[in-house]
Amino acid sequence: MNLPLAAIWGQDPGSGALIGYLVGAFILGVVMMVAMTKMPTRGRKPSVWIATFASGFFYFLFWIWPSPINRGPSDLPVGFSEKVGFGLQDALPKVANIAIILTAFLLGLGIYSLLHVHLGRLFKKQKDWQFSLILVVSMVLMIIFGYWDWMQRQFNDPDLLLAKMDNWGFVNYSFDLLFDGLLQQMDAAMFSMIAFFILSAAYRAFRIKSIEATVLMASALIMILSIMGAVDMVYSNMIDSMTGGDPGHFLNDAKITAVASWVKNTMQVPALRALEFGVGLGALAMGLRLWLGLEKGGVS
């Protein structure tokens, strides 16, 4: 089944036909966006619902319709059921691509929103405008050096010499400094601050005030000690000396790793399964409400 969309995605990069399709898609997108903006709320809600239902209906059909198994590249469908099954299977990557492209638009939306907020604060010299300036400058620098680095690698490095650091130049070092030297290090530093909060909480908040808290603390201690190899090994060796190395001895069950394994497999995993079931049922209910247009929020 050759979908009309396949004709668009199948064009050669840089060909006139592809550019024509892209311009057409852009104009259609702008027209649709303007139409949606001008549309009264009364009309907008059904439009959003129809788009949502159609998108969900494809995946619903894909899920319930018998799917061809071990299909070869030259296999042809026989009968209506197989034709639909083949068609759905062929359409899935195209639909997934559309979903991927739509999701990628969120990045653009994020950049727009960020610039809208911070440029506004900057030009109006609102409180903490200096931070907005740093943010915008950092973003612009990262975009410039990111693209510059990418273009060098893509178009000026046919032998892929830049894969080795020895061949780097100013642009590559600058991008590495910005991305790995600054952004990623700050990212790691922010995350590592959790260690301080956890330690502070362990000292000030983790108190045995009830039976539940005692059980929680006992479990936590077992899990912590099981990760500490040195403690585990000393304790295990002690038990081994008592059992004489007999793997069938009941005292082996008192090893920290054995107790931790029991806590994980007998307590933690079933509890998590129950939670996952609950979350799954909630997601199913929410998904159905969104799909069938019963959820009123977010479409006005």
Partner: peptide, 30 residues
């Protein structure tokens, strides 16, 4: 982007999911 859709498409058919994708090859003159 869209881990859910991308993973489903990968599971459906790896060939159609990455159809048309190209890569540079070391030693291939770019």
């Amino acid at each position: 982007p869209n881990a859910e859709g991308a993973t489903q498409s990968l599971g459906n058919n790896i060939r159609t999911f990455w159809e048309g994708r190209k890569t540079r090859v070391e030693g291939n003159g770019g």
